[in-house]
Computed example of a mutant assay.
Amino acid sequence: MPFSVLLSAIASALLLPPANSLLLCAAGFLLRQRMRKTGNLMIFLGVAMLLVLSTRLGAMLLVRPLENQYPPLAAAGDAQAIVILGAGRMGNAPEYGHDDEASMIGMKRLQYGAYLQRKTGLPILVTGGSPDGSPESEAALMARTLRRDLGAEVRWEEKRSNTTYDNAVMSADMLKQDNIGRILLVTDAIHMPRSVRVFSSTGLKVTPAPTVFTGTASSRITDYFPAASNLQLSSYAMHEWIGQAWYWVRH
């Protein structure tokens, strides 16, 4: 695993729920010996943040501003290709002969990309390397899944990228060699804002084609109940907010 990827994983573990709330509580306990009121406040804030982000209502505070930036695709326009971003893997899947397979959110991206190809006839590029050190790239397993399970052909496989920024730069290089400058970009709606920014920075004309909208369900009483799935969603959305800030500083 590249050192930069390992460093990013450590930073994410510390900055995202639930570790950030637990660290805030731990700091509060340490401060209570000398600054009782401040320590108690930090403990309260840590517990409150964990509880709020564990509810769907709390998660939507982070999710909806991201998902609302780009609506579902209405028309392909003058796009020349479909670019599908990788989203990790499910390793050693026994039901598929112990091959690695796309993650659940990655599978939704692939399904939508295949759907768009059937509608438009546009060629597909899949992008994703092996940030976890796996011998097979995400692009390779994505291409295999598209051909085997979804009947979609892949023209380009970008197999070296480890980050969304790498996805953009390396994919743009491949596409421009074939004189392609206009793309449909497929990723989930939460990830789309950061993806559009970095792909647009390469000079490509990007038409967003988001999928997996999680904030469209109607309100219900269970939105106020804590659940692990809500905390996971909050963590993903917070990761995107932090990622946008980091890309703004770094790139």
Rank of each mutant, 00 (worst) to 15 (best):
L146M: 09
A19R: 00
I124F: 05
I180P: 01
N230M: 02
L31G: 01
R109E: 06
Q111D: 09
L61S: 04
C25H: 00
A168W: 11
M42I: 05
A245V: 14
S201A: 15
P226G: 12
T127W: 12
L14N: 06
M49E: 06
A59T: 05
A228Y: 12
F199H: 03
D188L: 02
S201E: 14
I124E: 01
L146N: 02
R32P: 00
I43D: 01
A152S: 14
L16A: 02
E158A: 01
I124H: 02
R182S: 11
M174F: 13
Q232H: 07
W156G: 01
K205T: 15
N68M: 07
T216Q: 14
R109C: 08
V198C: 14
Q117R: 07
G106M: 13
A143F: 09
V206I: 15
M104K: 01
E95I: 06
E138A: 07
S137T: 12
W248E: 02
A227M: 04
M1C: 04
T163I: 03
Q33M: 02
K37Y: 01
E240P: 10
M90L: 13
G46W: 09
T163A: 03
T202F: 13
L30V: 09
E157N: 07
S134D: 02
D223W: 15
I190L: 15
V154N: 01
D178F: 10
A102W: 01
A209E: 08
P71K: 08
L23R: 01
T38Q: 10
M104E: 06
R182W: 06
F44V: 04
H239L: 04
N68R: 10
A139I: 03
L141G: 02
S200Q: 14
S8N: 11
A237E: 12
Y236C: 00
I221Q: 06
V198L: 11
D173P: 00
E158K: 11
I43S: 10
S134F: 00
R148S: 05
A87K: 08
N179V: 00
A79Q: 03
R144L: 03
S200C: 06
S54L: 10
A189V: 08
N179S: 14
A237Y: 11
Y165V: 13
E157F: 01
T207L: 08
L122E: 05
W248N: 09
D78I: 04
G128K: 04
Q232A: 13
L66S: 07
D188A: 05
P123M: 05
G129W: 13
A26G: 13
P2S: 05
K108V: 03
V126N: 06
M142H: 08
G39C: 03
G58A: 14
T216F: 04
A139D: 12
A76Q: 07
L22K: 05
R182V: 00
S4G: 00
L41R: 05
R144T: 02
A114Q: 07
Y165E: 06
D173L: 10
L51P: 08
G97V: 09
M49C: 14
P123A: 04
S195Y: 13
R36L: 11
P17V: 06
H98N: 15
N40Y: 00
V196W: 13
H251D: 12
A93P: 00
A26V: 06
